[in-house]
Design a protein around this nucleic acid. Structure first.
Lengths: 352, 352
DNA sequence: TTGTAGGCGTTATCAC
DNA sequence: GTGATAACGCCTACAA
């Protein structure tokens, strides 16, 4: 026994005006076109009947869906829920809703989701999945749909984007390690075809160079994904290689967790035998043993800022693309300590 | 320079037919109304032009948005991302998309989000936020929109729902503890106005009764939310109360994590001084020290099954509501061990 | 200040 | 089997 929804014409009838007048009274932008008295009658009628404008019909007419398409790699990555919350909370304030699409790093899937969203007339996109060169981007732009990038950015900074200063973050991490006395520092870099992986690796090299330290090949590994498994594999590889080291800078927290596993497996303990630094300060990462030293930034804010940049575009502001860098904060926890050689104990790896 | 989208009438013109015919050819359900030859021409034209039907216009006409409203408490709760993924993956297979709304346990917010979704003509709702008596439910039903519950269920089983067998799970947990030799077992129960909190508490009482054990008031605390803070507060309260116990069954993993904090604070160690059992087997909970013994079930499957039940309704199946119970699995990890009183003796498996 | 009319893109219901 | 027509609910020139 579904109750028929109340429509604009019902409100108009109740207020004794024409639907067009009711429409004007209900729409904040056109309310001043109508007499205050009429406006009040219409508003009262709408309230009484519980009128909700039909968003679908409105979209068809106005060509604006008030819907945003959001593409992320995988919601299961703990980095993304707070980002998505930030996005949705900010968008909701302006009457927008978000369609979330997971790509699982699969180009075909990404394209399917993208097209789905296009068919639903999303007013804009927020992408957290950008590769350094991404065909989807040019396509969206050609279609005249605003795009904002978050977390990852594109090769040229031609698009509005929000990201943490990855390079600075890793330089801070390296500086923290060297100030503890570490000199033999390994790096597990993330994938180099996304900006996060690349910028953090650059930050590592810059930090090491600034400290006058070498980066021999045996202390460097490239993860094929930002996953626990890859972190595990990479540190195992470095340990097997025999290039001794007392600390490792991981491309993100997931890789760092993988390092924990590899250390366990090798019978080494953190931080006594090896210090570990991550990146992101994922939720719950402070609950691990030892709690992970990592670089923090407000994930929620990444979402709200990305939403803000997109809303600016949607509200007509043109101008050059704003690229926002959040400053990371080094959170020192239990996974970093001076190297064993300095604490009185014999050095595990017997480094020179 | 936005390219104009290609419309049905463009396809029709290219194929040399009337738009109505093109529509029939493109729609699988009506394709048999049109000659095979024409159908092929239309399909070819559509492919060539890259035609994507306008979902908004279609919705207006057909009164179906192929959109589902999903209400969850908070995406930041690690339980929900996999559930949402399950939902979205299953819905996508049938051409539906999900609008996710976070309620933060706030009734007003829940109502706002619900109305937003209604205005967008969602074809159905999936609610993970159901209180035992929920006004939204009757409202949705009155509007003729199908509703499926997941994770939590309503007081009467009048709605299709998917949930783990909470009572059984906690009985398994208690049985595990008693078989280790525990007799003085505390319980930190979740909120009693939601089905999960209530059923798990019932399971605890049933399990204890089956083992012939008492539940004195001093070993029982009710959390006001499924949060780390509340778990912390509740166990601290129990410890302060002076009723000695050697194990605690927490209403979920978050509460269990709070227990870890309270134990740390009290200088007690887990599992030597106190065993802890959780519920849910949240992602990353196995990375804690000690890894948490808990009850696992496929969160992803909760999502896919909920989607399935809803799709059944949307495809017209009536019949009585199906209530699906997933069977939980006890995952024994490092947070449970025989009580200290027994560990001096070779009484590992044997309970007195 | 308010009413009229037309159309957004699609599909359902008629005719032919 | 196909074409014409109307309508889904709303907004917005334009007319009055």
């Amino acid at each position: 026994m579904p109750e028929p929804a109340v429509k604009l014409r019902d409100v108009a009838r109740q207020a004794g005006v024409h639907p067009a007048t009711a429409s004007r009274a209900l729409n904040p932008d056109t309310r001043l076109l109508v007499s205050e008295d009429t406006a009040n009658r219409v508003l009262a009628a709408a309230a009484e009947l519980g009128y909700q404008p039909d968003a679908v019909a409105r979209s068809l007419r106005t060509r604006r869906s008030h819907t945003i398409g959001v593409l992320i790699p995988d919601l299961n990555n703990p980095l993304f829920p707070p980002i998505v919350r930030g996005l949705e909370d900010r968008l909701e304030a302006d009457g927008y809703v978000a369609l979330i699409g997971n790509t699982d790093g699969d180009d075909a899937r990404e394209r399917r989701v993208f097209e789905q969203m296009r068919a639903r007339h999303v007013d804009g996109y927020v992408l957290a999945t950008a590769h350094l060169r991404n065909p989807l981007l040019t396509e969206a732009i050609r279609a005249g749909v605003p795009v904002v990038l978050m977390n990852r950015i594109a090769a040229d900074n031609s698009l509005p984007s929000v990201t943490v200063d990855n390079e600075l973050g890793v330089r801070m991490a390296v500086s923290h390690l060297t100030s503890l006395g570490h000199r033999d520092i390994a790096c597990i870099a993330g994938p180099q075809d996304v900006s996060t992986g690349l910028a953090r690796y650059r930050g590592f090299r810059a930090g090491m160079a600034a400290a006058g330290l070498d980066v021999p090949a045996g202390r460097l590994a490239f993860a094929r994904a930002f996953s626990i498994e890859e972190g595990h594999r990479c540190l195992r590889q470095i340990l097997a290689d025999g290039q001794p080291c007392t600390a490792v800078a991981a491309g993100n927290d997931m890789l760092a967790v993988g390092c924990y596993l590899a250390l366990d497996e090798a019978g080494l303990s953190c931080p006594a035998d090896m210090s570990v630094v991550g990146f992101n300060d994922m939720p719950f990462i402070n609950m691990l043993r030892p709690p992970l030293t990592t670089l923090a930034f407000s994930h929620y804010q990444v979402g709200t800022e990305a939403a803000r940049l997109l809303l600016e575009r949607l509200n007509g502001s043109a101008g050059p693309a704003k690229v926002l860098y959040l400053t990371p904060e080094l959170i020192i926890r239990g996974s970093t300590a001076p190297p064993a050689t300095l604490t009185g104990r014999p050095a595990q790896g017997g480094a020179g």
